[in-house]
Write a protein that binds this DNA or RNA. Structure first.
Lengths: 227, 227
DNA sequence: ATAAACGATCTACGCTGTATACAATCTACA
DNA sequence: TGTAGATTGTATACAGCGTAGATCGTTTAT
C-alpha cells in the first residue's frame, strides 16, 4: 500500500512549505499524517531518504501529466517529431518550470546540491535535456558536460535566489560605496550606479539562459566546422 | 581578544574536515577549544553565525598573504598595472583556487547556497571579479550579473562534485543502457558510449571555465559593436 | 572605592533521529 | 471456525542537539 508513502511525502512537503525545511521532523510529519513517528520508518527508511523523496516528488510535478512531450524523437538521426517545439524553447520551458518550482518550494533548491538525486524522475528529466542538446547539434562527447552545466546554472540560480546569496550586495550599503573597513573596493566604486539600482531577477534568469543557449550553439557550430 | 574567535573557527573547521559538517556542534567545538558550550556565544553569537564564520575563514584563505594582486587597477579607464596577469588568467586562478578549497573542505560547498555570505572577505573577492570583468570590456550594466553567473557555476560545480550530484549517472548502470522501469530513455541510449566512459572532472571544470570566458568575450564584443 | 561591563559557568527545557520491545490487527490455511 | 503468521502501528527509551536563564568571578571605568 504505497499510498501511505505518498501521504507521508505530501505531509512533509506541506510542512516544509509552511514552516521551512527545519520544521520537517519525523515527529511533525508523523503528527500530520496522524500516526506515531516510528510508523514512518517502514515507508521512508530514515530521514535522509525522506528528504530525497520530497525532492523527487517535486521533480515529478515538473510536468503534471505524463511526459512533457511525446517520447522518442531525441536521437539526431531520427529527425524531428511534428508537434514538438524546437530544442531551444524546450530547454527554456524546462528551466522556467524548475525555477517556478524552486520559487514555490524554496527549501528544495538547497537540497539539490546536497544529495545525488538518483530518482527515476530526475533521470527522465536529464534524458529530455540530452535529447535537446543532440538536436541542437552538440557532439555526443560534450552533451553530458553541457547538461551538467545547464543543471548547475539553473539549480544554482534557484538556490541562490531562495537561499539569499543574491541579496547582500544591496543590504550592505557600505560595500556599494566602494568602501570597506579593510580597504578600498575599486570594482564596487566603479559600479556604484549599477549596484544602486534594484536587480530584476526574472530578467537576469532569462539573460543567463540566453547565454547558455549561445554556448550550446557555439559548441554545435565548432563541431560542424571541424567535421 | 578576538584570537578566541579565530580559535573557535579553527576548531570548527577542523571538526568539519575530520568528521563532517554534522559533527560540528556547539558542544563538540567547545570541547575542542577547552571550554563549555555556552562560552562560545559571546564570540560567535549562535550556530548559524558560526557556520557563516567557517565559510568566511575559507574564503580568506583563498589568497594566503595579503590581497591576491596589487589593489587598484580595476577601473577600465585606468589602464593595466604592470605585474598583473590579464583578466582571463586572473579569473582562472580564482576559479581554480575556489575549487581547490571545495575539494579540501567538501562541507563548505553546501553552505554557499544556504547562507548569504556577507563577510568582508567575500566582498573583496567579488570586487576582484568586478575588476576583471570591467577590464574584459563587459559593460557596467552586465558586470554584476556575470559575476553572479560565474560564482553560481564555480560554486555549483564544486558543490555538485563534493555533494555527489555528479556521481549517479555511473553508479546507476541501468540508466546508461537507456532503460528504466517506467519507460525508454532515448537520450541515454544515444549516448551509451559516452556515458560508459569515466568522466574527467578536472577537464570538465576547465571546459566550463572556458565556456564562461567565451560568454564574457561575446558580451564585451556586442558592447563594442553597439557603441 | 564603587559601579558597571564582561567572560564563563551550570542547570534545565524542549527538541531531534531512531533502536528496541511490544501489542494489535488482518490474512490464510486447516 | 480456530489458529498461526505476517503486517502495521505504538510505547518507551537513549543520546545528543541549540540555547534561554540565572549565577558568579574578574576586569575595566568612574
Amino acid at each position: 500500500m504505497p499510498d501511505r508513502k505518498e501521504a507521508i511525502l505530501d505531509a512533509a512537503v506541506a510542512i516544509a512549505d509552511e514552516r521551512g525545511l527545519d520544521a520537517v521532523s519525523m515527529r511533525s510529519v508523523a503528527e500530520r499524517v496522524g500516526v506515531t513517528p516510528m510508523a514512518l520508518y517502514p515507508y521512508v527508511g530514515n530521514k535522509a531518504a525522506l528528504l530525497d523523496g520530497m525532492l523527487g516528488r517535486l521533480l515529478r510535478d515538473m510536468w503534471p501529466g505524463e511526459s512533457p512531450w511525446p517520447a522518442g524523437g531525441a536521437a539526431g538521426a531520427e529527425g524531428d517529431q511534428a508537434g514538438q517545439p524546437d530544442w531551444r524553447t524546450r530547454l527554456l520551458i524546462m528551466g522556467r518550470a524548475l525555477r517556478d518550482i524552486a520559487k514555490r518550494h524554496p527549501w528544495a533548491a538547497s537540497l539539490v546540491f546536497a544529495r545525488p538525486a538518483v530518482t527515476p524522475d530526475s533521470v527522465r528529466a536529464i534524458d529530455v535535456v540530452y535529447g535537446a542538446l543532440l538536436e541542437a547539434g552538440v557532439p555526443a562527447g560534450q552533451v553530458p558536460r553541457l547538461e551538467r552545466l545547464l543543471g548547475t546554472v539553473v539549480f544554482g540560480f534557484a538556490a541562490s535566489e531562495a537561499g539569499g546569496r543574491f541579496d547582500p550586495s544591496e543590504t550592505n550599503p557600505r560595500s556599494t560605496r566602494g568602501l570597506l573597513p579593510e580597504g578600498p573596493l575599486p570594482g564596487h566604486a566603479a559600479l556604484a550606479d549599477v549596484l544602486a539600482a534594484p536587480a530584476d531577477w526574472d530578467a537576469e534568469f532569462e539573460a543567463d539562459i540566453a547565454d547558455l543557449g549561445e554556448i550550446i550553439e557555439a559548441t554545435a557550430r565548432r563541431a560542424r566546422e571541424h567535421e
